[in-house]
Design a protein around this nucleic acid. Sequence first.
DNA 1: ACAATAAAAGACAACAGCGTCTTTTATTAT
DNA 2: ATAATAAAAGACGCTGTTGTCTTTTATTGT
Lengths: 146, 146
Amino acid sequence: MVISKTCGYAIRGVVFLSLDQNRTKKIGIVEIAEELQIPQHFLSKILQNLVNKGLIYSVRGPHGGFFTKEPILKTTILDIVKIVDGLSVLKKCFLGREECSSENPCPMHDEFESCREGIFDTFRNKTIGDLVQGVESGETTLSGIA
Amino acid sequence: MVISKTCGYAIRGVVFLSLDQNRTKKIGIVEIAEELQIPQHFLSKILQNLVNKGLIYSVRGPHGGFFTKEPILKTTILDIVKIVDGLSVLKKCFLGREECSSENPCPMHDEFESCREGIFDTFRNKTIGDLVQGVESGETTLSGIA
DNA sequence: ACAATAAAAGACAACAGCGTCTTTTATTAT
DNA sequence: ATAATAAAAGACGCTGTTGTCTTTTATTGT
Ligand code: FES
Ligand code: FES
């Protein structure tokens, strides 16, 4: 729709690991995938990527798993989108032309530009901490299973 | 990004056929594809689909081609999106959960819902005639080649 | 040291979106 | 009737996304 499914999985994974109740411990991929209803090995690769980028952490072996550190709460959605999808997803022409350009706009450009700005702002301003808060307060859920 | 590339091609194709200078005549796929910089046979199938749905028309043989009739100008972008992509594209959960639901929202739901409403409104209100007008006035272009 | 554990890594499969190429069918003009 | 034309239809290939499965590597506890 806007970001890839993979990127959505990444965001949900990071938020889950950043919940108050989880941030102190390491959690195995089996539990995370089960909780979020995401294919295990697929999510595994996604989180591995985030580990490589230094956004989250992991240790192998018994009692190992994935975990986050406190600064993660300041991480913005944009940071994750950058890593997983890249920014090009926000720069394409709405009507599938080669390039989106304000100098030579397509018929939907203006309408779309404002919408895109809105999304970009949201990405830039929303932090993992914000999303964690929503889940902690019970207003939102990560799994989709009520 | 939001709609498929295919759908963008469809919209551009219909708008092109609906320009004042084109609406009176039939235009061959070679010329349309050339003008819009879209792969010919691919665009061909897309337009064929629109013909089957009764949105545009075509005749085969010498001096045949694709053409539109006047009521096309009242057609909304939403009408085309419905035909090409379907409405499901506007109903997916932003974070890749099984379903988007207001009763059981994901952490990005509210932010995204307002953005989605904006897109939906645009789709509902913008007509082919509106886009034609932009192109006719020289404010916007279809090809992307200045 | 050794066995158990869990992430990391690799290979591979299914699928959809996008695109190309060829053959068929309908229409027109001669 | 016949030939030329152009859309319609079909087959196929490429690529990126999504997902599954197996093997390897690092860590821990005994
Ligand atoms: S030129 Fe099409 S969205 Fe900007
Ligand atoms: S539940 Fe995720 S966007 Fe609505």
